[in-house]
């Protein structure tokens, strides 16, 4: 059994699927990173992804253009995140509760909206046309390299964008004044405020970016990954993204690695489900178990690090004679 498993894992198509599965989680994780950097916990990512997945499909169906659909999902994502911002920043709804409300709309609300717009119940399978799907991209030269080409070439356009977004998010956070303001606001509001940076405005912007990224993640799910929208398709990816953010220490690159870890767990799950002697359900729980383990490891590491720095500081301060 294990032999069979190893054989599968070390095939290019497995690594290909890891990347494919990681992409939407990565979008959402970056969304969580940006929001959290500004000091806002966006637990509504799950709902935003579900709703934007639906609108991406619907808009691409109406326009018969995947590009317009993706753009639509992105805009809807921004709008939803700003709505959350309005409630949290203006009306002072607890942001966690506001996020839960978005998730409610993402749950049953989307089924209703789908019916409202199309009369369909629960999924859009029958609407799908090739024009609505995000195209795959074969990268010249790269695709001809054995193994590497098989793994890295032929993904959806959004997959490449997702990984490129890691770089862009990093660039935005660390190389632009917006990023500087976001980080300042998230860490010390008073400091930002005292030099004339508008805290509320920065939080709105960060939430908007977060919504846009989640929107791309949603579009990826319905317009590429599943090739149509169906209820429950997000299946906790928005929540996993929050964990990926935490585990990645809130940094774009770190969150990419933890997203890849969850992608790996998920791909493993997909492979193992079909195997003899494996319980598909237990296997299905792997990504969530890995997430919890990841959180634990991260928390332990943080505590260790804090203790270590304290000890180091104390060692520096204590005169040699007074060592206890």
């Amino acid at each position: 059994m294990w032999e069979q498993l190893f054989e599968m894992i070390f095939k290019p198509d497995f690594l290909f699927s890891v990347i494919r599965i990681t992409s939407p989680i990565l979008f959402a994780a970056l969304a969580a990173v940006v929001a959290e950097k500004a000091g806002v916990t966006n637990i509504g990512l799950e709902g935003i992804m579900s709703i934007t997945a639906l609108f991406g499909t619907l808009i691409s169906y109406w326009t018969q253009s995947w590009a317009v659909g993706v753009l639509g999902a992105l805009i809807v994502g921004i709008a939803l995140a700003l709505l959350l911002g309005f409630f949290a920043l203006k009306l002072k709804t607890d942001i966690i509760l506001g996020g839960i409300a978005l998730n409610m709309i993402g749950g049953g609300g989307t089924i209703f909206l789908l019916y409202l717009f199309t009369g369909l119940r629960g999924n859009t399978g029958e609407l799908t046309t090739p024009e609505m799907l995000i195209p795959q991209v074969n990268i010249p030269l790269l695709k001809d390299i054995p193994v590497v080409g098989e793994i890295l070439s032929g993904h959806s356009l959004l997959t490449y964008i997702a990984f490129f977004m890691v770089f862009l998010t990093w660039l935005m956070l660390y190389k632009t004044s917006l990023g500087l303001n976001i980080r300042a606001v998230g860490e010390n509001q008073n400091a930002a405020d005292s030099v004339g940076v508008s805290v509320v405005r920065i939080k709105y912007i960060a939430l908007g970016i977060s919504g846009a990224l989640a929107g791309l993640g949603g579009a990826y799910m319905s317009m590429y990954y599943s090739r149509s929208w169906n209820s429950g398709m997000i299946a906790g990816r928005g929540f996993i993204a929050l964990a990926a953010q935490a585990m990645g220490q809130g940094e774009p690159t770190g969150s990419m690695w933890s997203s890849l870890l969850f992608g790996l767990a998920n791909a493993l799950k997909n492979k193992m489900e079909g195997m003899q002697g494996m319980s598909s359900y237990l296997v299905a729980s792997i990504p969530y178990v890995v997430t919890v383990l990841g959180l634990v490891i991260y928390a332990v590491a943080t505590i260790r690090r804090v203790k270590k720095t304290r000890r180091a500081q104390n060692a520096m301060t204590a005169p040699a004679g007074e060592e206890k």
């Binding site: 860490e187 400091a191 005292s194 004339g196």
Partner: peptide, 27 residues
């Protein structure tokens, strides 16, 4: 009134950061 994780220079120019190419901070 300082942001601990930012560098000294970043704290200095917070809210009035010099820019290059219109978008990026001229660090």
């Amino acid at each position: 009134m300082l942001v601990p994780s930012l560098t000294v220079a970043e704290n200095m120019v917070l809210g009035m950061a010099p820019k290059k190419k219109g978008l990026f901070i001229d660090m």
